[in-house]
């Protein structure tokens, strides 16, 4: 404010030695402006959920603070789980491990089961979307199978594999494959005739047609399926792990309940929620990257 008004033209002509002091002035204003704008935009998105969160915490604290309350208040949760929060990497052997190991074991199972489901789902979806006969034959089957709750498959999987690990992966697979198949098939069926004509004139062979026309054209649909699928597999893994035991966030929760560590359950739920959110966003982000510019026609 103390500086006299300097027009940009004058500033440019000033010798470089004087520039640092003088030239910063007119430059700083727009930068500060931009900064302010970003800060405001962030605040608008971040502050309301923070306020709601604080209010909920307060409410929870008040309700659960009374003597005889069955659930611990947030202050007690934090006190009980300090060690788990600040040291997620300890490993005392068996299932006595830090949360990082439990979560990574669960994520690994999801990664296996979900990747298999993605590959098989896209392949089957393409078949069903492309061939009328495959659709007539398979669609009714899919429609029935997809209504079976994930956990109902677990005993059957255990009987077949006689081991927890492959059974859990199978449950993930069978849970997440249906939305992938169905959405891929819709995407393939919706490939405009024009694109098929282009492919026919250029004489693409079936494999080239699959990679160069089908996948990109159906990509928005496929990613919708993939996104629903990843959410479902995260839902299913927690339940499956509770039953199969071993290292994994699902069994961690079950184990905490058995040893009446309610605070640990609450902490685990927090992590499960955050990771489910991140998985969903990751697939959505990947979809955005891959289909960028595709939807605009």
């Amino acid at each position: 404010m103390t500086m006299p008004a300097i027009s940009p033209d004058n500033v440019k002509m000033l010798p470089t030695t004087a520039a640092p002091v003088v030239a910063m002035r007119p430059k700083r204003a727009p930068r500060a402006d931009r900064f302010l704008k970003i800060a405001r935009a962030t605040a608008v998105r971040v502050i309301p959920p923070l306020i709601v969160l604080a209010l909920l915490m307060l409410f929870w604290e008040l309700v659960c603070r009374r003597a005889g309350s069955t659930l611990p208040p947030p202050s007690k949760v934090f006190k009980d789980t300090r060690e788990l929060i600040f040291d997620p990497f300890f490993d005392h052997g068996g299932i006595d491990k830090g949360l990082f190991w439990h979560l990574s074991a669960s994520l690994q199972r999801v990664a296996y089961g979900y990747s298999l489901a993605a590959i098989a789902g896209i392949a089957l979806g393409t078949l069903v979307g492309q061939s009328v006969w495959a659709m007539r034959g398979l669609d009714p089957l899919f429609q029935v199978l997809r209504t079976i709750p994930p956990l109902a498959w677990l005993p059957l999987a255990l009987a077949a594999f006689r081991d927890g690990q492959p059974s859990a992966i199978f449950v993930i697979f069978i849970t997440s494959i249906w939305p992938i198949i169905i959405n891929t098939a819709v995407g393939i069926r919706n490939i405009p005739q024009d694109y098929r004509n282009v492919a026919a004139v250029v004489q693409l062979n079936p494999l080239e047609f699959f990679w160069k026309i089908m996948l990109p054209s159906a990509a928005p649909y496929i990613f919708t399926g993939l996104r629903i699928g990843v959410g479902l597999s995260w839902l299913a893994i927690i339940a499956a792990e509770m039953l199969i035991g071993g290292v994994g966030i699902g069994f961690f929760i079950w184990d905490a309940w058995n040893s009446s560590h309610i605070s640990e359950i609450i902490l685990a739920l927090f992590y499960v929620g955050i990771i489910g959110f991140v998985l969903d966003r990751a697939i959505a982000g990947l979809g955005y990257l891959v289909t960028h510019g595709t939807s605009a026609n």
Binding site: Y195, V198, A200, V201, V202, Q203, K212, P216, A219, S295
Partner: peptide, 27 residues
């Protein structure tokens, strides 16, 4: 159909996920 009888379609029918160059490159 074949490339000896190339078609220019009424609604251009360019593949939206390819660049201009890549659209020509396809053929």
């Amino acid at each position: 159909p074949g490339p000896d009888r190339a078609v220019v379609f009424q609604n251009h029918s360019l593949l939206p996920w390819l660049t201009v160059y890549q659209n020509v490159q396809l053929g």
